[in-house]
């Protein structure tokens, strides 16, 4: 663009639709800046949110107790499950409260309180309730919430095979 033309552009009223040199440069600068920022940061964002997007592994079933030993009174069983936490693999001991319901079906509750994640125990305060020591959440034998907690206790998926009770992944309560 020669000098005269530039003068023209400057003086001409804004009737011409082409963008000015300055506008073009500004947009290009903005575009290049956006590319530089995006190109640098996008991989990092994907890197950071990876745990959300990773496929959740299906848990396996673990043999915990003989079917005949389960009564209508909840008993605590502890068992090990293979857990993969990134690069760290472990076999943490989990626990469940197993009981036979009024319908005669065996079910297992997770002792993790649905209020804020403390651990509940059976018959600690009242002989027929689960009680959480943190905030006094209470649940019925079926894990139905009575106070404080917003939801009922989670259940383990239960499988019966050959006289043994197997516990699987945790699922929302189906009994309450």
């Amino acid at each position: 663009m020669d000098h005269n033309k530039q003068q023209d552009t400057a003086h001409a009223p804004a009737q011409r639709k082409e963008m000015t040199r300055r506008q073009f440069l500004s947009y290009t600068l903005g575009g290049a800046g956006a590319f530089m920022a995006g190109g640098a940061i996008l991989p990092m964002i994907r890197f950071a949110v990876d745990p959300i997007l990773q496929k959740k592994e299906k848990g396996n079933f673990v043999k915990v107790i003989e079917e005949s030993k389960v009564t209508s009174e909840p008993t605590e069983v502890k068992f090990k499950v293979h857990q993969v936490d990134g690069w760290y693999e472990s076999d943490p001991k989990l626990s469940a409260w197993i009981a036979k319901g009024d319908d005669g079906k065996i079910f297992a509750l997770s002792p993790v309180c649905k209020h804020l994640g403390c651990t509940v125990s059976w018959a600690a305060e009242s002989p027929t309730e689960y009680h959480c020591p943190c905030h006094g959440a209470r649940y019925t034998k079926d894990g139905k919430t009575l106070a404080v907690a917003p939801k009922s206790l989670d259940e383990y998926e239960v499988k019966l095979d050959n006289g043994w009770v197997y516990l699987g992944p945790i699922e929302p309560n189906t009994r309450a």
Partner: peptide, 16 residues
Amino acid sequence: DYIKELMNGGTIVGAQ
């Protein structure tokens, strides 16, 4: 749930 999982770096409070 998303906030929690993002801060957890997974589903449990652990190594990540």
